[in-house]
């Protein structure tokens, strides 16, 4: 108990004094996960619009499949990406294994189902008369899509932030294909798991507090958006 208490005090000290190592790890974590969330959004928002507005065979099945993958285990994605980018894998020549880029790719895959699913339901939430209104005012089908996306902008933002939250809190992918290399691919979650197993609780707790703070901020932002 004393040990935990001391660890907590030390951890607060690390944060307050802006300890270079803590800040470096937290900064990298944020950079990687923000990048993953943004890149995934750039792909998923248009893709979700296409799925939503187009009528095609197997649409329901596809949406069900997407929802099934909401809770895909991170280690499964880690394994999947590992197989592709390991030296012997089909994309091995890119030399991506154990790089921040590899983590970004893994996290993008991880958040794709959530993003697609949430954006599709955001678009579904838009009043159908709005589409008629846009068309009746002379919008082309592309312009109509933009109208609907703009109308659903808060819900779409929620989806992106949820995706970011999922990305920054995962550990399996960062560990398996990032490799937890100090000063290169070490992120908050991998650092916590390593330092804890080494018995260095201070750093773990400090990073834990930061991670929880990020989660808190994300939540506050989400609530703010959803209230609009």
């Amino acid at each position: 108990m004393i040990e935990l208490w001391n660890g907590l005090l030390k951890a607060v000290e690390l944060i307050v004094t802006l300890d270079p190592e803590v800040m470096e790890i937290a900064g990298r974590s944020l950079r990687i996960s923000v990048t993953s969330a943004i890149l995934a959004s750039l792909i998923c928002v248009p893709l979700a619009s296409i799925i939503h507005f187009r009528q095609f065979r197997g649409k329901r099945f596809l949406i069900n499949l997407i929802q099934t993958f909401y809770s895909v285990p991170t280690v499964a994605i880690g394994l999947f990406v590992f197989v592709f980018i390991s030296r012997a894998g089909p994309l091995g020549w890119l030399g991506l294994l154990f790089s921040p880029a590899a983590i970004v790719i893994g996290q993008m895959l991880l958040v794709t189902p959530i993003l697609l699913g949430l954006v599709i339901s955001a678009l579904r939430g838009v009043d159908i008369t709005l589409i008629d209104t846009a068309r009746s005012l002379g919008a082309s089908s592309f312009q109509t899509t933009l109208v609907v996306l703009r109308e659903a902008r808060f819900a779409v933002m929620v989806a992106i932030i949820m995706a970011f939250g999922r990305a920054i809190s995962e550990v399996g992918i960062s560990l398996m294909i990032g490799g937890n290399i100090r000063g290169y691919t070490r992120v908050i979650t991998t650092a916590i798991s390593l330092e804890t197993s080494k018995g260095d609780l201070e750093l773990s707790i400090a990073l834990g507090i930061i991670l929880i703070s990020i989660a808190l901020v994300v939540n506050i932002v989400l609530n703010r958006i959803q209230q609009r």
């Binding site: 009043d127 008369t129 709005l130 008629d132 209104t133 009746s136 005012l137 002379g138 109208v147 703009r150 109308e151």
Partner: peptide
Amino acid sequence: MAFVLQKPVVF
């Protein structure tokens, strides 16, 4: 043309 729907919705 321009059409004002019965229950107009605004953006």
